[in-house]
């Protein structure tokens, strides 16, 4: 079935199967920043934006993306890089496999929460798992990024 969507500000028409998930479709079209790691919609690695809201692309049928605006980290290199610079200056990307999805969530959080507290930051990002860092370095990077103490 053909869908038409906007991917990183570009309108595309893609053939997708009825049972295909968006994460797989995105990867098959070369958006390789989108990672999958859990198969149960709970790790956050496949996070992309749909119409400006972060969502798990492993759990959305590609058909659902028809007429939508999808953004991956490839879609806003400047904003993502600004945070990625801070993250990697902390050493908090470690293996990096969870970083693109995590960064997508952090950027969404920046849009949604005004002056979040530490507790609010942690709560917002709970769905982004990381096995390498123990989360402390990520929190340090976010605080620097948001300019909160």
């Amino acid at each position: 079935m053909q869908i038409e969507l906007t991917i990183n500000d570009k309108v595309v028409k893609w053939e997708v199967a009825n049972d295909e998930f968006l994460a797989d479709t995105l990867r098959s079209h070369g958006f390789l920043s989108v990672k999958k790691a859990c198969d149960t919609s709970c790790c956050g690695l496949c996070t992309v934006w749909m119409d400006g809201k972060s969502m798990l692309s492993c759990s959305v049928l590609s058909l659902r993306a028809h007429g939508k605006k999808i953004t991956t980290i490839e879609g806003f290199p400047k904003e993502a890089e600004e945070f990625a610079q801070i993250l990697s200056a902390e050493g908090a990307e470690q293996c990096g496999f969870c970083s693109p999805g995590f960064i997508m969530s952090v950027l969404a959080m920046k849009n949604e929460l005004v002056n979040p507290t530490e507790e609010e930051i942690i709560h917002y990002l709970t769905g982004n798992l990381c096995r390498c860092t123990g989360y402390m370095g990520q929190l340090r990077a976010i605080k620097i990024y948001l300019g909160v103490a």
């Binding site: 920043s33 989108v34 990625a84 990697s88 200056a89 050493g91 990096g96 496999f97 970083s99 693109p100």
Partner: peptide, 20 residues
């Protein structure tokens, strides 16, 4: 505390892992 030489590439989701 020098940043990892691959840090930016992996954080930004560049295709550098096995499956990619």
């Amino acid at each position: 505390s020098i940043r990892k030489i691959d840090g930016m590439a992996i954080a930004m989701g560049k295709p550098v892992y096995t499956e990619d």
